[in-house]
Simulated assay, not measured.
Amino acid sequence: MQKLLSIFRITALLEGVSYILLLFIATPIKYLYEDPQYVKILGMPHGILFMSYVVLAILISSDMKWTTKTLWIVLVASIVPFGTFYIDKKYLKKSHI
């Protein structure tokens, strides 16, 4: 359980960083400078990290004894900028110590 939680925390961090880069750097460059290369570069890794985040959240939810509401909060946080950082601090960090 601890190993899967550690993997989930790393995935959450990477997913959050990739989402921020995609939203606030790559997408503006795409539309302001008509240069889609950064979206192409970041898009696939972010998609893989997003899917991994969702699958891992579902897998660890029973071990973490999350209610359905908590699981939904964790899942919705993956589509909110900076959401995965909040989830790590509120739901994951204290159970990792």
Results as ranks from 00 to 15, higher is better:
Lys65Gln: 12
Ile25Phe: 14
Val39Ala: 14
Ile79Trp: 04
Ile25Ser: 09
Ile10Met: 14
Leu14Asn: 10
Tyr53His: 08
His96Asn: 11
Tyr19Asn: 11
Leu92Trp: 12
Ser62Trp: 01
Ala57Phe: 03
Lys40Tyr: 12
Leu22Met: 15
Thr84Ile: 06
Ile73Gln: 02
Thr67Val: 01
Pro45His: 04
Ser62Asp: 07
Glu34Phe: 14
Trp72Tyr: 10
Val54Glu: 05
Thr84Glu: 07
Gly83Ser: 05
Ser6Gln: 11
Phe50Trp: 14
Ser61Ile: 04
Leu92Glu: 10
Lys94His: 15
Gly47Ser: 04
Gln2His: 05
Lys94Arg: 11
Ser78Ile: 05
Leu22Val: 00
Leu49Asp: 10
Ser52Cys: 14
Leu21Met: 14
Gly43Asn: 06
Tyr91Pro: 13
Ile58Leu: 03
Glu34Val: 00
Ile48Cys: 09
Phe8Tyr: 15
Ile97Trp: 15
Val76Trp: 02
Ile58Asn: 00
Tyr31Gly: 09
Asp88Trp: 02
Trp66Gly: 01
Pro28Gln: 13
Ala57Arg: 04
Phe85Cys: 01
Ser62His: 05
Leu56Ile: 08
Ile87Phe: 00
Thr11Leu: 05
His96Phe: 15
Leu75Lys: 07
Lys69Gly: 08
Met44Glu: 01
Leu5Lys: 07
Met1Gln: 12
Thr68Ala: 09
Ser52Lys: 01
Ala77Asp: 10
Leu4Pro: 02
Met51Ser: 14
Leu71Pro: 08
Leu5Val: 14
Phe82Arg: 04
Ala77His: 08
Ala57His: 08
Thr84His: 08
Pro28Lys: 04
Leu14Ile: 00
Lys89Gln: 14
Leu5Asp: 13
Gln37Tyr: 10
Val74Asn: 10
Lys90Trp: 07
Trp72Met: 11
Leu75Asn: 07
Gly43Tyr: 03
Tyr31Ala: 06
Leu23Ala: 11
Tyr86Phe: 14
Glu34His: 12
Val17Ile: 15
Leu49Trp: 11
Leu49Ser: 09
Leu23Lys: 11
Phe85Val: 01
Ile29Ser: 08
Ile48Lys: 12
Lys69Trp: 08
His96Lys: 04
Pro36Met: 04
Glu15Phe: 02
Val80Asp: 09
Ile41Cys: 06
Leu71Thr: 11
Thr27Leu: 14
Lys94Phe: 15
Ser62Tyr: 10
Thr27Ser: 15
Ile20Phe: 13
Gly47Tyr: 06
Thr70Lys: 07
Lys30His: 12
Ile41Asp: 09
His46Glu: 03
His46Pro: 09
Leu21Phe: 06
Phe24Pro: 03
Ile73Ala: 00
Leu56Ser: 03
Ile87Asn: 03
Lys90Met: 11
Thr11Cys: 13
Val39His: 07
Ala26Pro: 07
Met64Gly: 01
Gln2Pro: 00
Ile20Tyr: 05
Arg9Gly: 05
Tyr53Asn: 09
Ser78Gly: 15
Ile87Arg: 01
Ile48Val: 15
Ser62Leu: 07
Thr70Met: 12
Pro81Phe: 03
Thr67Gln: 04
